[in-house]
Design a protein around this nucleic acid. Structure first.
Lengths: 199, 199
DNA sequence: TACGTGCGATCTGTGTGCAATACTCATCAC
DNA sequence: GTGATGAGTATTGCACACAGATCGCACGTA
């Protein structure tokens, strides 16, 4: 049940139903979700560990503050972690990756939900890495970043640009140019950040 | 109180009082620590999030299995994370770092508790990085690694070797050779891993 | 003898209650 | 009018209680 609660609360934080700095009222939220305070608190603690909430001793849990400068820390971090995951993917797995990636890029063109499709592409990119701890760190960090993405992802159409960058990365991988792919990957994230900052 | 419980349980896992694959009996441990099950469970959940325990639905918490291959994943991971922290330390802060590092190296010579002194050196190395999320990931990952360190850190005297490597890293930083320092840092961790594997 | 089955004990997962602390708001002094 | 103070309320943090699930063991059967 913890897992479902974490998912639900994460969703509310990400889509803005729980704005930054909101104090979480445990009894109200518990009754709203139809559970008791005990499992709810356990979920809140998990979210605080991941940084999406902050625990204020004696005052409960707040939604983590919203700080544009934090995004400038998170985007490069996720970029480097993904690049690392790529470096730690075995050559055999790496060989099959570009095709799988481009297949997702093709789907993105048709998709309506761009951010979700983008997520799928990046998930595929790291999926072959055999370092589970690194993958855990990535999974823990991405939700923090996603909050800024959904907050700022407004008018501009970055989708086409992003797909093109993704294809470049896949091409670099196909050419066995891992450093090049890593560099392009970091650029992909940093350019996404640039769109945020402009907003 | 969660924090103290997490510390206490972490200590027990690290020094072997809770061996790998041990099932945690919540009622027994709670009475042993003089607390209720509620805060204890909260601490256990936190430890499971960090990977030191694993949560088995319906069966409670187990101490994470002990797998030498896991060490081969963790050491390079921490190495790369620390190198990243170094890259993301401002030049100004970086300038003052070598002296502070060598001061700790001097202390290590006198110290009896080598592993703790080694920890202090690495903590100093990353302390100036201004990316709190990266630092959080490092802090979360190191305890996992430390379990293997304490388990295998036996006869061989790696201390002198490690201090020498630390001084090399400080020297590289003094020469403004950040890539070199990063490479040495990764080697420092990998050599530590080599000692483990031999045991 | 080996294997499947059923029962009892144990433990986890969740719900509820209570004390301590933090917050709100009205009152009072300056 | 503004800031401090105190009582009342709300909320958290912890302890306890109960239901469901799991595990171990004995028994029965092939």
């Amino acid at each position: 049940m913890r897992g479902e609660l974490i998912e639900e609360i994460t969703a509310r934080v990400l889509d803005g139903r729980f704005p930054a700095d909101t104090r979480i009222n445990e009894v109200r939220l518990a009754s709203e979700l139809g559970v008791s305070r005990t499992p709810l608190r356990e979920a809140l603690i998990g979210l605080a560990d991941r940084g999406l909430l902050v625990a204020a001793p004696g005052r409960g849990f707040l939604v983590a503050p919203f700080d544009p400068q934090e995004a400038r820390r998170l985007y490069p971090l996720v970029a480097e972690l993904e690049a690392l995951a790529l470096r730690w993917t075995s050559p055999l797995e790496l060989a099959s990756l570009p095709d799988a990636l481009d297949r997702i890029s093709d789907e993105i063109a048709d998709s309506c939900d761009l951010p979700a499709a983008d997520d799928r592409w990046h998930a595929m990119l790291t999926s072959r890495c055999d370092n589970p701890h690194l993958l855990r760190l990535i999974e823990q960090t991405k939700p923090l970043l996603k909050r800024y993405e959904t907050a700022y992802f407004g008018g501009r159409d970055r989708a086409a640009e992003s797909v093109a960058e993704h294809r470049e990365i896949a091409a670099a991988l196909r050419a066995d140019d891992l450093p090049g792919a890593s560099a392009l990957l970091v650029r992909n994230w940093v350019k996404a950040l640039a769109y945020l900052k402009g907003s």
